[in-house]
Each structure stands twice: as structure tokens, then as C-alpha cells.
């Protein structure tokens, strides 16, 4: 490599560093989305659509692949400090009750471990029913199911202020059915630990 090329590369490197920039990364599950770079007034779209691309955030964005150099150490450190993805658990219930199925009950210990392992954890508890009974009764039942799980977690020592419970009745069926159909998979509580 001759001196001039090295000088040019150095210049380019400096220029790239002087700008604000963004890096589009692959998603944790393998795919990737896109980021549109617009002017502050919302016009003039430049689409960053390839994962592992760096784009300058200037009036005329320039997009380059990250290449073999990869992320800067500061960027890698930033990514490493992201909180882990939320984890979701589903508990199933006996018909018309707030009693968990035999299979679901042991999951509570896993939920407990997940909460304990996350500093500053929040727990979102959402109750659901199948389509047996009236909408109003199912709203109440789903709320009771969610509150039952919240109480069980509270009895295991978790502060209620980190938890919230909501009942969605039969609005969000896991498996769609006609009205007044008993369905074990729809009688559930979803617990999201964040």
C-alpha cells in the first residue's frame, strides 16, 4: 500500500468519525428491520436496509458496510449493556376457576427465578378466558385469574409495586372459537417479566 492511499484512508477515517452516525444491526432472532434517515423536517428519505451498515447522519447520508472492522469498542460495550429481552410465560386454568392446571403450577417457580434474576424487574400479568359465559363474567374472571397469580407471586416475597394485573376477558383468544366453547388453551394468564 503506498503512502497516498494510507493518507487517504486516514482522512476518510477521520471524516467518518467526525460525523454523527448510526449502525443498523441484525435482530436478536436473526432477521433485521430498516431505519429511514430523514431530514429534520421529515423529507428526503434515505433507507438503511442492510444489516451491519453504518450511515452518517448528515444532510446527505453516506451508507457503508461495517466490514471486517466491525463495531467500535464503545459501540460493542453499549450493545452489551442492553437489558435482556422480556420473557413470557403462559399459565393455564381449570374451567370457570382461578385454579391453575396441575401442569402449570410448577411454572410459578420458573417465573420467580426469572424475576429474581433481573435487577429492577417488572411483571405484567394478563388474564384471559375461553368463550363460555357472558362477556361481563369473563372480564371479571380474567381479572381474578390475573390477580390470583399476582397474589401468589406477592406471597413469594415479590413487591406488588413491580407488578400489574389486567383482565382481557375473551377478547384475545389464543385459539379462535365460536361463542360458548370450552377451551383449555384459551383459559390462561400470560406473565411477562421485563
Amino acid at each position: 500500500m503506498n503512502g497516498r492511499v494510507v493518507a487517504l484512508l486516514a482522512l476518510f477515517g477521520l471524516a467518518a468519525c467526525a460525523h454523527s452516525s448510526m449502525v443498523l444491526l441484525p435482530d436478536e432472532n436473526g432477521g433485521h428491520g430498516q431505519v429511514a434517515i430523514l431530514k429534520p423536517d421529515g423529507t428526503g428519505e434515505t433507507l438503511v436496509s442492510e444489516a451491519n451498515s453504518r450511515a452518517t447522519l448528515s444532510a446527505t447520508p453516506a451508507i457503508h458496510p461495517l466490514g471486517s472492522k466491525g463495531l467500535k469498542p464503545t459501540e460493542a460495550a453499549l450493545l452489551a449493556s442492553l437489558p435482556p429481552p422480556p420473557k413470557s410465560f403462559t399459565l393455564y386454568f381449570l374451567e370457570g376457576t382461578t385454579e391453575m392446571t396441575e401442569k402449570s403450577a410448577p411454572l410459578l417457580d420458573e417465573i420467580k427465578a426469572e424475576i429474581a434474576g433481573r435487577p429492577g424487574a417488572e411483571v405484567q400479568v394478563t388474564g384471559h378466558t375461553d368463550t363460555v359465559g357472558s362477556d361481563a363474567d369473563n372480564d371479571a374472571l380474567s381479572q381474578k385469574r390475573a390477580e390470583e397469580i399476582m397474589s401468589l407471586l406477592a406471597s413469594k416475597g415479590f413487591d406488588r409495586t413491580i407488578m400489574s394485573a389486567v383482565g382481557r376477558g375473551e377478547r384475545e383468544l389464543q385459539v379462535p372459537t365460536d361463542d360458548n366453547v370450552s377451551s383449555p388453551v384459551n383459559r390462561r394468564v400470560e406473565v411477562i417479566v421485563r
Binding site: S20, S21, M22, V23, L24, L25, P26, D27, E28, H32, G33, Q34, V35, A36, I37, L38, K39, P40, D41, G42, E45, L57, S58, A59, P61, L71, E75, L78, L79
Partner: peptide
Amino acid sequence: ESLLGVRGTRFIV
């Protein structure tokens, strides 16, 4: 100097 429209993804600014 810009406005980013985020279309479901992971990125750094």
C-alpha cells in the same frame, strides 16, 4: 441533523 424512522429493529445512534 436528522430524523430516523424506526421500522422494527436493533440499531445504535
